[in-house]
């Protein structure tokens, strides 16, 4: 068999899967977003063409802009704190001579094992105003005298959902930074020490520059995924209080699957989200992943 034929046959299952589950639905979402699709139309199986009407209605909806604003704030908080924490904790677990660092390193992947929806429910128990575990800890430690309403305050709710999200997704970033740390030649540090550089100088002039590429990768991947945050919102706040934690994915979900089930508008809003993430993905492919041109 010729190499080119062989390569093609080997890829038939993948091409079928990608076509059926990714390419076709993505194209079909574009189609739906240009048509009027509600429950009545679904039952009849006829979707009248409506042009840009769905996009217009989404863009005119103040709640959509609230959702976009919240998504941007959520992403900025989670991604920036993840990068700082990932670098710090990766350096911490890299101290193999300290026994507590070895313990931390052993535990570091634990959050990766927790289902996101379970993570959300666990934190909603932690945050509960009346019965919450976090308030119990703070009472026991004598740090508060009245219960704190962690997720129920519109000013702090978005931060309250950001913490569980960071908790769950941080291991991924730590693992990547820790792996990159192993690739920094030891001689660089030895030479710097001989030249009299202190720990801060070594970090600033050796470690950080050597981590630049992996930080770019984490920045892009985490930004793209934080844009689509869903489970923690569903479990902890359901978008509330008020609209304080409505994010883009929650908006598409509610518009589509809560009455009056506007599939067209839902698709349009999801498409806007997808285009934003698509732009990030292209940057990733062109500038960051380029080393893998195999």
């Amino acid at each position: 068999m010729r190499a080119s034929h062989f390569a093609f046959f080997m890829n038939v299952p993948t091409l079928l899967c990608l076509g059926l589950v990714l390419a076709y639905p993505v194209a079909y979402a574009a189609y739906l977003s240009m048509h009027r699709v509600g429950l009545a139309q679904l039952r009849r199986g006829e979707f009248p063409f409506s042009g840009w009407e769905n996009y217009g209605r989404v863009l005119e909806d103040p709640l959509f802009w609230v959702a976009i604003k919240n998504t941007l704030i959520f992403t900025a908080i989670t991604v920036s704190s993840e990068i700082v924490l990932a670098v710090l904790i990766a350096l911490l677990i890299n101290q193999t001579s300290v026994w507590t660092s070895r313990l931390t390193r052993f535990l570091i992947l634990l959050p990766y094992a927790i289902p996101p929806i379970a993570n959300g429910l666990i934190w909603s128990f932690l945050y509960s105003f009346q019965f919450g575990f976090l308030n119990r800890i703070l009472f026991t430690a004598g740090l508060i005298s009245d219960p704190v309403n962690w997720a129920g305050n519109p000013n702090t709710a978005l931060y309250a959902v950001a913490v569980p999200y960071v908790w769950r997704t941080l291991p991924f970033a730590i693992i990547l930074v820790h792996a990159a740390l192993q690739g920094i030649p030891r001689e660089l540090y030895e030479q710097a020490s001989i030249d009299g550089a202190n720990a801060w100088h070594r970090f600033w002039h050796i470690t950080l520059p050597m981590l630049r590429q992996i930080i770019a990768i984490i920045l892009i991947l985490r930004t793209a995924f934080a844009f689509a945050v869903f489970e923690e919102i569903l479990a902890i706040t359901q978008g509330g209080p008020g609209d304080a934690t409505w994010v883009a994915a929650w908006y598409s979900y509610k518009i589509t699957f809560a009455p009056p089930n506007n599939f067209g508008m839902g698709s349009a809003s999801a498409y806007i989200l997808a285009l934003m993430i698509g732009a990030i993905a292209l940057v990733y492919m062109r500038f960051v992943y380029r080393r893998v041109t195999l």
């Binding site: 995924f225 869903f230 598409s252 999801a270 993905a281």
Partner: peptide, 20 residues
């Protein structure tokens, strides 16, 4: 295509997947 596909959020696929 796979690199870009990895970024596609489930929420975008959900609605067409449901209809399909």
């Amino acid at each position: 295509a796979n690199i870009v596909a990895r970024f596609v959020p489930v929420i975008v696929l959900m609605i067409p997947l449901y209809v399909v």
